[in-house]
Design a protein around this nucleic acid. Structure first.
Length: 263
DNA sequence: AGTACCACCTGACGGC
DNA sequence: TGCCGTCAGGTGGTAC
């Protein structure tokens, strides 16, 4: 599930429900969910603190612990956050539960356990240490052109490389390329200025709109590729059929009739 | 530098 | 109904 729009939805959820409440206790029900930290360290870092503000960098979510470092969360393929009120039971597969003094709590849930919870001194430092590229929504068109120009290989692979640009995954790379009418297999460096401009415009539009719609496929326009990710499905733009192929070991979809731009 | 493939996990789904 | 292979929006390692 979680690419940039999903994580942005989690960020807003956290900000709307869980700021400025004293952490009373932390329950780690699965220590393998922790990365670069331990149960005692996480508990000590959180207990008695408040979450004072949030930040998102690509698919990583950060929460400031009242100036005493930052909580870091990554959501793998199945992770999400759920705030529960006093007396409500946290969801199944909750790995870390942050319980507040007012009785409510914030659950980090991850069925497949491919995500993690960690601690960091600061988001920017963390991003640099873990070799994350700039957050996708901070890129200018010129930035994007520079990144792609020095890149060999397909444009879809480039978009999905977190070291190059942080936040775009398999689903949204397909979606962005569909709207920009660019062939996902096109060499990144071969895109002309007009194509890069379209790519940048759609990158911004698709990611923002998806986040504003709660990253909920049900609420995304039917004119998008997302509801039509099936080999042979009619192209939502009315040109030919959606095709599935494999790239970087992932199932990728595009409309060969619409997405002819290769340079 | 890129890519292909496997691994890490758990669950849902389709075919038989 | 039950078993089995396949696939799933994540990343990281290895071998080419």
């Amino acid at each position: 599930m979680p690419e940039l729009p999903d994580v942005e939805v989690f960020r807003r959820h956290l900000a709307a429900t869980s700021l400025h409440r004293t952490v009373e206790r932390v329950r780690v029900s699965d220590t393998t969910a922790l990365r670069e930290t331990s149960r005692p360290r996480l508990t000590r870092a959180l207990s008695g603190q408040e979450l004072t503000r949030t930040r998102r960098h690509g698919k990583h979510l950060f929460a400031d612990l009242s100036g005493e470092g930052w909580l870091v969360m990554h959501f793998g393929m199945t992770g999400y956050l759920q705030h529960t009120k006093d007396g409500e039971r946290p969801p199944r597969h909750t790995r870390v539960l942050v319980a507040f003094a007012d009785g409510s709590s914030l659950a980090y849930v991850d069925q497949r356990r491919l995500g993690f919870v960690s601690l960091a001194d600061a988001p920017d430092e963390y991003a640099e240490a873990h070799r994350l590229g700039p957050d996708a929504l901070t890129l200018s068109a010129a930035d994007l052109r520079d990144l792609l120009q020095h890149r060999r290989g397909a444009v879809k692979s480039a978009l999905m490389d977190q070291e190059l640009v942080a936040g775009v995954g398999n689903i949204y790379s397909d979606e962005i390329l569909f709207h920009a009418r660019i062939d996902p297999k096109a060499p990144a460096a071969a895109l002309d200025q007009a194509a890069v401009r379209r790519l940048h415009r759609q990158l911004m539009r698709v990611l923002r709109l998806a986040a504003d719609r709660g990253a909920d496929p049900e609420r995304l326009p039917d004119s998008w590729l997302l509801p039509h990710r099936e080999d042979g499905a009619p192209c939502p733009r009315g040109n030919g059929e959606v095709r599935k192929f494999t790239m970087s070991g992932r199932g990728a979809f595009y409309c060969p009739a619409c997405q002819r731009s290769t340079g």
